[in-house]
Computed example of a mutant assay.
Amino acid sequence: MEVLKESAQIIQDLIFKLGYSNKVIELPNSARTAKEAAGALNCEVAQIAKSIIFKLESSNSPVLVVASGINRVNEKQIEQVLNDQLGKADADFVREQTGFVIGGVAPIGHKNRVITFIDEDLLQYSEIWAAAGHPKAIFQLTPKELIEMTKGKVVKIK
């Protein structure tokens, strides 16, 4: 059996605990960007579910947007849904709130409670790929599983 990095194993254990059988895999090279991950997996960049952490200005709470790899998050769109201002989250904030480094933030298993939004564009694919706690670790899932696992709200992000 393949031994996963500690942060990736945490995600694998959580996936099983949630009742799913999705397998975390580690790529030989970085999957830090959607383009790198898609190249390694031989899939469309749009099938990469990239996790982007923002900071709510009012409360300093983390907000996760799980976006299709080809989409740029329109922060104004998310601010309208939240009725609050979004700020940039630096690497320290991301690690502090999620327990993961940028480039490896999984959509689940965060240290603190995270408000989660899911890009509606991901719903058109039968399978998508998300980071699994480490820049080289990923797992395959369906958009339905992503919604169930994260309890995220599907929104238009662009």
Rank of each mutant, 00 (worst) to 15 (best):
M1G: 12
E2P: 11
E2G: 08
V3E: 15
L4G: 10
E6V: 03
Q9C: 05
Q9S: 14
I10L: 14
Q12A: 14
D13F: 09
D13M: 05
L14N: 04
I15A: 02
F16N: 06
K17Y: 03
G19N: 06
Y20K: 12
S21Q: 10
K23Y: 07
K23S: 13
V24L: 09
E26W: 10
L27W: 02
R32F: 04
T33Y: 12
K35Y: 12
E36C: 05
A38V: 05
A38E: 02
G39I: 03
A40D: 08
N42T: 09
V45T: 07
V45I: 15
Q47D: 10
I48R: 00
I48T: 04
A49N: 14
K50Q: 14
I52N: 05
I53Q: 03
F54R: 02
L56C: 11
E57M: 06
E57S: 14
S58V: 11
S58T: 12
V63K: 08
L64C: 00
A67P: 13
A67L: 13
A67G: 13
A67I: 13
N71S: 13
N71D: 15
R72T: 13
V73R: 02
N74M: 12
N74G: 08
K76Y: 12
Q77H: 13
I78H: 05
I78N: 07
E79G: 04
E79A: 05
L82R: 02
N83C: 12
N83G: 14
N83V: 10
D84I: 10
A89I: 03
D90E: 09
D90K: 01
A91E: 15
D92V: 08
F93V: 01
V94Q: 07
Q97E: 02
Q97L: 03
Q97R: 15
V101Q: 14
V105H: 00
P107D: 13
P107Y: 06
I108R: 01
G109F: 10
H110D: 09
N112E: 13
R113P: 11
V114G: 08
F117L: 12
I118C: 02
D119V: 05
D119P: 11
D119Q: 06
L122K: 05
S126I: 09
I128T: 06
I128H: 07
I128L: 06
A130Q: 06
A131Q: 04
G133H: 04
H134L: 04
H134M: 01
P135F: 00
P135K: 00
K136A: 00
K136R: 14
I138R: 11
F139P: 09
L141S: 06
L141W: 06
L141I: 02
T142Q: 08
P143Q: 05
K144P: 10
K144T: 08
E145M: 00
L146T: 04
I147W: 07
I147K: 10
E148V: 12
E148M: 03
M149N: 01
T150N: 01
K151R: 13
K151P: 08
K151L: 10
G152E: 06
K156D: 00
K156N: 03
